[in-house]
Design a protein around this nucleic acid. Sequence first.
DNA 1: ATCGTAGAATCGTTCAACAATCCAACGATC
DNA 2: GATCGTTGGATTGTTGAACGATTCTACGAT
Lengths: 231, 231
Amino acid sequence: MSTLAQGKADLERASTAQKVADMLRERVLDGDLAPGLRLSEEAIGGALGVSRNTLREAFRLLTRDRLLVHEHSRGVFVRRPSGTDVRDLYAARRVIECGSLRLWDDVAEAQREAVRAPVRQAVARAEQNDWTRAGQANIQFHRGIVGLAGSSRLSDESDRLFAELMLAFRVAQEINDFYQTYVPWNRRIVELLDDGRTTQAVDQLAEYFDAAEQDLVARLEAHQSKGNVKS
Amino acid sequence: MSTLAQGKADLERASTAQKVADMLRERVLDGDLAPGLRLSEEAIGGALGVSRNTLREAFRLLTRDRLLVHEHSRGVFVRRPSGTDVRDLYAARRVIECGSLRLWDDVAEAQREAVRAPVRQAVARAEQNDWTRAGQANIQFHRGIVGLAGSSRLSDESDRLFAELMLAFRVAQEINDFYQTYVPWNRRIVELLDDGRTTQAVDQLAEYFDAAEQDLVARLEAHQSKGNVKS
DNA sequence: ATCGTAGAATCGTTCAACAATCCAACGATC
DNA sequence: GATCGTTGGATTGTTGAACGATTCTACGAT
C-alpha cells in the first residue's frame, strides 16, 4: 500500500515547471536567494536550461506558496515580509493553531503523538546546540498541532504561513538563536496537554504567539531600514 | 485616500491573464462552467482570443483559488468537490470561524457590525424569497466572522474555501433552498453575541457547521453517482 | 467480452519575435 | 543645484508556430 502510494507519487512528479519550482523553493528557504531579490527570467531560465514560459509557470507555483511576489511588468521577487505581514501571519496562526489545539481531547492518539514527538526531538537537538534541526522540529510541532483539525486544506495553508515566516526570520537574521527561548515553552505546552489541562495549554500557546510576534516584529523593524538586498 | 486606493487598484488591473482569470472565475461561480467540466486550452483560448501560454497562466491563477484542478497531461477541470472534500472544508471552517468568533469581545465595533449587517440583510432577502441574494448575504456573514481575526491571509484563504463550497452546493443542486434552514440560525447567533453570551454563540456556530456538513455531504453523495458532467 | 494496439487529439515545452512597460542616465528648465 | 521631461536600453507581457510526449478513443484480435 505504501509502495503503491510511493509509486503514484513518483509518477505524478512529471512536470518540468514543478521540478524547477521545487529547486527554487529549496534555494529560497535555504537563503541562497535572499528576500527582496529580483528573479530575472532570462538569467534563471538560462542557468536552469528551461524556457521562459516554463519558468514563468514555476514562478506562479511559488507565488501561490507565497515565497515569491509578482509585480506586474516588474518581475518576481523573493518575498520580504514586513512587520505588518508578521502581525497578519501571527493573527492567522493564533486562530488556526489555538483552534486546532482545542481539539486535543477529541482526536486519535496518533495525531496527539505527532505533536509530542517533535517536541522531544527539538529538546534533544537543542541540547546538542543543533539549532537548525531544532528549528525544523519546532515547525513539525506546529504542523502537528494544525494536523489535529484533520483538514488537509488547513494544513496546506499553514505550511504556506510557516514558509512565509521562515522568510521573516531570515530578514530578521534570527534563524539560529530564535528557538532557544521557545523550545522549553513548547515542552511545557505538551506537559499541560498530557495533564489534561487543555485549556491552559491553549492559553500558553496564545502567549507564545504574543511573545514570538513581538520579538520578531521588533527585530524585523530594526533590520528593515537597512537595505540588505543583494542584486 | 480612498480615491487613491481605487486608482491604484485600477492600475494594477493590467494583466491579460488576470482579466481572463476573472472572466472564467465568474463563469465558474455562476455555473456556466459546470463542476467536472474539462477546459480545453484550444477551445477557450480561441474563443477568448488569447494565446495558449497566456491562458495557461490564467488557469494557474484559478488553480490557486481552487476553482480549477490541474491534472498532468490531461488538462484543467472545473473542481468537483467530493464528500471527502466537503468534510475537509468544514473541518477547516470550524477551526477558522469558531476561533475568529471567539474574538468577538476584543475587536472594534466596526468589525462586529460587519457580522450583524449581513444577517439583517439575509433575513430581509429571505422574506422576499430572494434566495440568491440571501445566500450572498450569508457568505458576507461568514466573511465578517473571519474578519474579526484581522488577518488578510486568513480572510483570503476563507474566500477560497467559500468558493470551493459554492461548487459543492452546485454539485448537490441546492443553491437556492439550502439557506432557508440556516438563516434563522445565523440570526440566533447574532442575538447571543449581542447578549454577551459569546461562548454559546460559538457553540451554536459549531452546531451549524455540523448540521450543514451532514446535510451537504448527504445530498452530495446522492448526486455524485449520476455523471452530470457536460462535455 | 477482454485485451492490446494504432491513430487522433491534447497537453508540455521550446523558440523566436514584437509590443508594452519599467528603469536609469542624461539633459533642460527654473 | 534640484526638479522635471525625455531618451534609450533592458526586462517583462503576449503571441504564434512547432514538435515530442501523453492520454484518449475506437477498432480489431484473441
